[in-house]
């Protein structure tokens, strides 16, 4: 059973059309979605999370068709670029938020996150409020909060884009360690090849609403697709992503 399966997903946002996109992500895989700004990566992950309604296609998470389910019923952990921590709640209450929403008391929810707090090294931050945290600390807390929901799929939308270089490296190290420890299938949106190399087991490249290719980075470098947008993102061509070529078939299996 795949952690995520998408078949023929398409949606329109203003003048932008996403898809049709199809992909399958096995349990324990770490997929990095790359693409230029405006290529549709964030729309795709928002559709997976249930924050945008697709016009057609199906989304299956952990064997359950979630296409018609609200975001809360999809068993997804979500970290947006801005971390979007709840500023009126302490770090502890941010972390216990999923448990409390699910009906647990604070004490029970706190017990539920004890391992996460240890794993991510958040103990010293628990009493602080988000506006007092550094960018890197915020993203760690946001990751912890997403994992506290015990998701079947983790969706990270540009989790390190807003950070300085040392913080990026630190968060990427944390993401690798967390993924090794928990083995949760992950989709990670980014622009940077270095970031993709650092964390991914698979890479998907998007351009103009289409998923152009999907595969392990070494395979993509060994057999680089001809599409100029893919070659530009892989650093194989200096040319920008300005191709007018029709997109390649948008179907892959990880």
């Amino acid at each position: 059973m795949n952690a995520l399966e998408i078949h023929g997903l398409s949606l329109t946002a203003g003048a932008f059309r996403l898809g049709p996109v199809g992909l399958a992500l096995s349990q324990g895989e770490y997929l990095v979605l790359m693409g230029a700004t405006g290529s549709g990566k964030s729309l795709l992950v928002k559709a997976i999370c249930g924050l945008l309604v697709p016009e057609s296609g199906t989304i299956t998470v952990g064997g359950t068709d979630v296409t018609q389910l609200p975001p809360r019923a999809r068993r997804i952990g979500y970290v947006p670029q801005t971390s979007a921590l709840f500023p009126h709640l302490s770090v502890l209450r941010n972390l216990t938020f999923p448990g409390e929403v699910a009906g647990q008391g604070l004490h029970q929810a706190r017990e539920g996150i004890a391992n996460l707090v240890d794993m991510l090294g958040l103990e010293s931050l628990l009493d602080r409020i988000p506006p007092t945290l550094s960018g890197g600390e915020r993203q760690k807390v946001a990751l912890g909060r997403a994992l506290a929901a015990r998701p079947a799929l983790l969706v990270l939308d540009e989790p390190v884009s807003a950070l300085d270089e040392p913080s990026r490296r630190d968060i990427c190290r944390v993401l690798r360690a967390t993924h090794q420890e928990l083995g949760i299938a992950t989709i990670h949106v980014c622009h940077s090849l270095a970031e993709a190399k650092s964390v991914s087991s698979q890479v998907g490249i998007m351009d103009r609403g289409q998923l152009l290719c999907l595969g392990a980075l070494p395979d993509l470098f060994a057999h680089p697709p001809a599409h100029p947008a893919v070659r530009a993102l892989l650093g194989l061509d200096a040319s920008p992503t300005t191709s007018e070529d029709p997109a390649l078939p948008a179907k892959g299996n990880v």
Partner: peptide, 15 residues
């Protein structure tokens, strides 16, 4: 209040 914060709450289990 950023819409993103609401989005996260919805995905984390809120109606």
């Amino acid at each position: 209040v950023s819409g993103e914060v609401e989005d996260v709450a919805l995905v984390l289990g809120c109606s």
